[in-house]
Every structure is written in C-alpha cells, then in structure tokens.
C-alpha cells in the first residue's frame, strides 16, 4: 500500500517536473557559481547548500539546482524503466505463449534463445552495445534518442525473464479442460491463444512486469553511472552519482541525494510488486 502511494507520487512528480521546477526550483542548466566556494569547488553552507531556495542543495563547481535535476532525472529514469518493461513484456508474452502452446521445434528454438540470452554477460554487453550505437536518432535530440536506445537494450535483455514464466504457465494451462473444450468446439489456435490462455496469464504477467521495473531503474542508473546512459548535461540519477565520485569525501550530500532517491524509488516499486503478487497469488505469501 505504502509502495503504491509512493509509486503514484513518483509518476506524478516525473510528469509535473517542468511545473514543479518552475514553482520550487531553478532551471536545470542554470549555473549558480555564487553558491560555490571558489577555492574548494564545494557548495557554500551546510549539507551541500540546502536552503529554502535550493531544496536539495546545489552541485559542486557548477552550482546547478539538484532539486530540479532530480525531478528531470525521474522523467528519464521512469520512462526508460516503464518502456523497457513494456518491451520485455510484449516480447516475453508472445514468445512464451508460442513456445508453451506450440511445443515441438518452436518451443525448442525459443527456449534455446532464452537460455542463451540469460547466459549472456548482459551488463557488459549492454555497455559495449551502447558505446557503439549512435547518440542521435530520428532527430529526437540526444536525451530522448538515448532513452530510446536504452529502452531497446534493457527491454531486449529482459524479455526471457517474462518469457520463461509465461511459457511455464502456458504449458500447464494448455492441458486444462477449458482449453480442450474450446478446441473441441472448433476454435482456431489464435482464438485459444488470445481469448482463452492470455486472460488467464494476465495476473502473472502483470506481477512480473511490475517486478522488472525496479530492476530496470537500477540498470538505467548503472549504465548512466558508467557513462554510457543518458549523456551529460542531461540530468540523470546515475550520472549524478558518477559525478559525486570525485566529491563524496568533501561534499557527501551530492552522493546521498541521488543515491537515496534511487533507493527509495526502487524500494517503492519492489514493495508495490510484492504486494501485487501477494494479492493476486495468495499462495506465494
């Protein structure tokens, strides 16, 4: 329950980021060098320069407003996480259903591909792939182009998790009487797949989709932390943490704020997913 409230709050924050920034923050690219100690490069004032004017303090050196950068970071982080979960779910459901329902060589091929993808050094591969793919796509600007590329890469590596579960469930469901009844009434495979099996698979698909969202948030932040995610100066949580590496001994707040935000977001989504699973599948409690 608490998880659900925080999740909704975060989604609203991400959507309203421009409005909230105008009300409580400063533009993300505005430099405030007057807030920076010129010799150390750290924010003036306690706790990384937190004040009523700068709710989360300012960045070392540039003096950019951390509060608005966190808000815009939420936009990128959540859109990557949701869209890639969506990609994984679609691919995983379609291939899982096909493998479980059709069996035979289709099942063998799809299962082999899933095993193969799970046996892949994924993070390494994602980093390498992201570093050779171009920064600009379809004239979207570097921020949303990168979001799109990240969605593709994270979504693609995530589908076998969903696919395996859907396949397993399909295997047990297809032997059930209602499928047999439908088949004896002359239903075609397509109808059995989408009208009989899919509705019964909705609950597990929903639960596992919810549970890969926090993983995706962590992956996106990790990739941005490693410098292959959202390119600077666009704000991203992982990117902020990576900048904080140089400053964490003298300005720990600059590390604690994005780290804490990632932690709370992932925790909320995990709580929400666990709650959803317990509600939809009381046996797993």
């Amino acid at each position: 329950m608490a998880g659900a409230i925080v999740v909704i709050f975060l989604i609203l924050v991400a959507i309203l980021a421009p409005v909230l920034t105008r009300l409580f923050g400063h533009p993300i690219d505005e430099y405030h060098t007057d807030k920076i100690d010129p010799t150390l490069g750290t924010p003036i004032g306690r706790l990384g320069g937190i004040s009523w004017d700068f709710l989360f303090g300012v960045e070392p050196q540039s003096g950019r407003d951390i509060f608005s950068r966190i808000l815009y970071g939420a936009q990128t982080s959540l859109s990557v996480a949701f869209l890639s979960a969506f990609v994984s779910t679609i691919l995983g459901s379609v291939f899982g259903l096909m493998a479980g329902f059709l069996g035979g060589w289709v099942d063998a091929t799809i299962s082999r591909v899933m095993d193969f993808l799970l046996a892949f050094p994924q993070l390494l591969f994602a980093i390498a792939l992201l570093s050779v793919l171009p920064d600009e796509l379809f004239g979207l600007g570097d921020r949303w182009s990168r979001v799109l590329v990240l969605v593709g890469v994270i979504g693609f590596f995530g589908w076998p998790y969903i696919g395996r579960i859907v396949r397993g469930q399909t295997l047990s469901l297809r032997e059930r009487e209602f499928v047999e009844a439908s088949r004896s009434l002359g239903a075609r495979s397509g109808r059995i797949l989408f009208r009989e099996l899919l509705p019964n698979l909705a609950a597990p698909i929903l639960v596992y989709t919810t549970l890969i969202i926090p993983t995706n948030i962590l992956t996106e932040a990790a990739l941005s932390f490693l410098g292959v995610g959202i390119p600077p100066p666009n704000p991203s949580w992982g990117g902020m943490l990576s900048d904080a590496v140089t400053f964490y001994q003298i300005d720990p707040m600059y590390m604690i704020i994005p780290g804490g935000v990632i932690f709370l977001t992932v925790l909320a989504f995990n709580l929400f997913g666990d709650g959803l699973r317990d509600a939809l599948d009381p046996k797993a409690r």
């Binding site: 590390m255 932690f263 992932v266 995990n270």
Partner: peptide
C-alpha cells in the same frame, strides 16, 4: 533484505 535488494551497489559502495 527488501532494502538490500533495492540498494544500488554503486551507491552502497561509495557510502
């Protein structure tokens, strides 16, 4: 444990 699975290692490591 739930907190543990939600903590990114690049944050706990720095911390």
């Amino acid at each position: 444990a739930l907190a543990g699975v939600s903590l990114p290692i690049y944050f706990t490591g720095l911390l």
